Simulated assay, not measured.
Amino acid sequence: MPTLQAADDLNLLPVPFVSQVMPIEPDWIDYNGHLNMAYYNVLFDRAIDELWLHLGIGADYVKRRGGSTFTAECHVRYLRELHLGDPAQVTILLVEADDKRLHTFEELRHATDGWLSATSENMTLHVDMSTRKTAPFPPDIRARIAAVADAHRGVTRPEGIGRSVAMPSKRG
């Protein structure tokens, strides 16, 4: 994982953000012989943690600054199975951000072949841990987030952003 020192230069981050390659662990394979649905979320979460480090809101942010992030909403689409031995990598697009919220869209891909396995669209809230209520990001963090959001604004929006769950005959 990147260190906090790596967070010093947001200009070096790829657009969209690209996680390190992650292996599929043996205990994550279910009785169908593929990655259990819960572990897709583990991969997405590990990738978000990498980006959060660059933004200055990683795991030590709670101790240092008393803030954290909570996921308020998540929509996962499972598009193609991953299996034991498949290398996985996540790209993260910061779709939009404001004083308290981050809207992200993540794509989980086979790291060497490039095919899309799953997507995850999330609304994340900034929380003051002393009150456990939403609160604005500190100004320095907000500036870091704004810089990444600005860089991501020019990226073509992937298929699936804003998609709702509905029976195929009910989609408009």
Score class of each variant (00 low, 15 high):
Arg132Thr: 02
Glu107Gln: 15
Thr3Asn: 14
Asp86Tyr: 06
Leu13Ser: 12
Phe137Leu: 09
Gly58Asp: 04
His152Tyr: 15
Gly67His: 05
Tyr40Arg: 08
Gly33Met: 10
Asp60Phe: 02
Cys74Glu: 11
Leu79Ile: 07
Asp140Thr: 12
Asn122Asp: 10
Leu94His: 01
Asp9Cys: 04
Thr131Lys: 14
Pro16Gln: 11
Thr104His: 13
Asn36Arg: 14
Pro26Gly: 08
Tyr40Cys: 12
Cys74Phe: 07
Gln5Cys: 00
Arg77Met: 09
Leu93His: 15
Ile57Asp: 08
Gly66Ser: 00
Gln89Pro: 08
Leu55Pro: 02
Glu73Pro: 04
Met129Gly: 03
Asp86Lys: 05
Lys133Arg: 09
Ala166Tyr: 00
Asp8Ala: 11
Asp30Cys: 10
Arg163Lys: 08
Asn122Pro: 01
Arg157Asn: 10
Tyr61Phe: 10
Ala47Phe: 03
Asn11Ser: 14
Gly172Lys: 06
Ala6Lys: 15
Met129Asn: 07
His75Ser: 01
Gly114Asp: 12
Leu93Ile: 06
Arg109Gln: 02
Arg144Met: 06
Leu10Cys: 05
Gly154Val: 14
Glu25Met: 13
Pro139Lys: 06
Gly58Arg: 15
Leu35Thr: 09
Cys74Ile: 13
Asp98Ile: 14
His83Lys: 14
His103Gln: 12
Ser68Cys: 06
Val95Cys: 02
His54Asn: 02
Leu82His: 15
Ile141Asp: 04
Asp113Arg: 08
Leu116Gln: 04
Ala47Met: 07
Lys100Asn: 01
Asp113Val: 02
Asn41His: 12
Pro136Thr: 02
His110Gly: 03
Tyr40Lys: 04
Thr131Tyr: 01
His126Cys: 07
Ile57Glu: 07
Thr156Asp: 02
Pro168Thr: 00
Arg80Lys: 04
Asp150Gln: 13
Ser164Asn: 11
Ser130Leu: 05
Ser68Gly: 14
Leu55Glu: 13
Ile24His: 03
Gly56Ala: 08
Thr3Val: 05
Asn32Lys: 08
Val165Phe: 07
Asp30His: 06
Ala118Asp: 09
Ile24Ala: 11
Met129His: 03
Lys100Tyr: 10
Val76Gly: 03
Leu108His: 03
Arg64Ile: 14
Leu10Lys: 03
